[in-house]
């Protein structure tokens, strides 16, 4: 997991990296809503152009990220193809493939555009925001909500993100260990899953227990130091750009 760049925080000293977490979260929401409301070609073009500029501004390794997005590229392609063939409508003139409709292609491209916007905005946010900042912002937004223990929710978010790479590493190691003992010769898939899932759950629970002990040993408390948020002019400018993109798409 250490080699993965996509959806991982990449430390740089840029305007986007220094931006206030709360405003960044608001930008994430505005871009996601813009993706949902987009319908015309230019509705996609504007947010996508802004996001490309954001990637350049944040000095994120674009080619590496693009390479790691191959899997999502495949999903986007599937979305376009499935929509093109399943949505009824006018056939495309001179098309060598039968069954493709103009409306299908258009709907497929719209879905693909939405997916791409959500992917890019997630990439920018995760690449420029350390988990703690993100967590603090979520905690800040939850503070006025009654009956929601905001500190506990924030800790749960933190631990979940922390444990995912650890669980994936354990999973890979267990797979290798079982392959080295010829598990592939077992034809029953249920048994193979059983050999993998139960030890993985067991190990994850043990690790969770250890982490809980380690946190307690360091005086874990829900009454913690509160982050001092700082909002500069540039932060507000970023929010204004996001608002402009949102209203452009909406109107």
């Amino acid at each position: 997991m250490a080699e993965m760049t996509l959806f991982h925080y990449i430390h740089k000293n840029t305007v986007l990296h220094r931006m206030d977490g709360r405003l960044k979260l608001a930008c994430l929401l505005l871009f996601s809503l813009a993706a949902g409301f987009a319908s015309e070609f230019h509705d996609y073009l504007v947010p996508l152009s802004v996001l490309f500029c954001a990637i350049l501004l944040a000095k994120l390794p674009f080619t590496t990220l693009l390479r790691e997005m191959r899997f999502f590229g495949l999903i986007i392609l599937i979305v376009i193809v499935v929509n093109s063939f399943t949505i009824p409508g006018d056939p495309i003139a001179n098309s060598p493939l039968a069954g493709i409709s103009q409306q299908g292609v258009s709907t497929g491209l719209r879905f693909a555009g939405r997916l791409l916007i959500v992917l890019l905005v997630s990439m920018v946010i995760t690449g420029t925001t350390p988990l703690m900042k993100f967590r603090d912002a979520v905690e800040w937004y939850l503070r006025p909500v009654p009956f929601v223990p905001e500190a506990r929710v924030a800790t749960m978010i933190n631990l979940t993100f922390l444990l995912i790479p650890v669980i994936l590493d354990s999973f890979r190691e267990m797979m290798d260990a079982q392959n080295s003992r010829c598990v592939q010769l077992r034809k029953n898939p249920v048994k193979r899953i059983k050999f993998l899932v139960f030890p993985l759950i067991d190990q994850t629970l043990r690790r969770a227990d250890e982490i809980a002990y380690a946190m307690e040993a360091r005086c874990y408390s829900e009454i913690r130091t509160r982050t001092a948020f700082k909002c500069g002019k540039i932060d507000w400018l970023m929010l204004a750009i996001s608002l402009a993109v949102f209203f452009f798409v909406l109107l």
Binding site: Y9, P130, L131, M132, E210, A214, M215, R224, T225
Partner: peptide
């Protein structure tokens, strides 16, 4: 196992975990 003690995403964040629990000023 030092891995089980790590709760931060960066080295500095992890070290800050204890003092933040003690509610020290930023």
């Amino acid at each position: 196992d030092p891995e089980s003690q790590i709760v931060g995403q960066t080295v500095a964040e992890d070290v800050a975990f204890g003092p933040e629990n003690l509610n020290l000023p930023v």
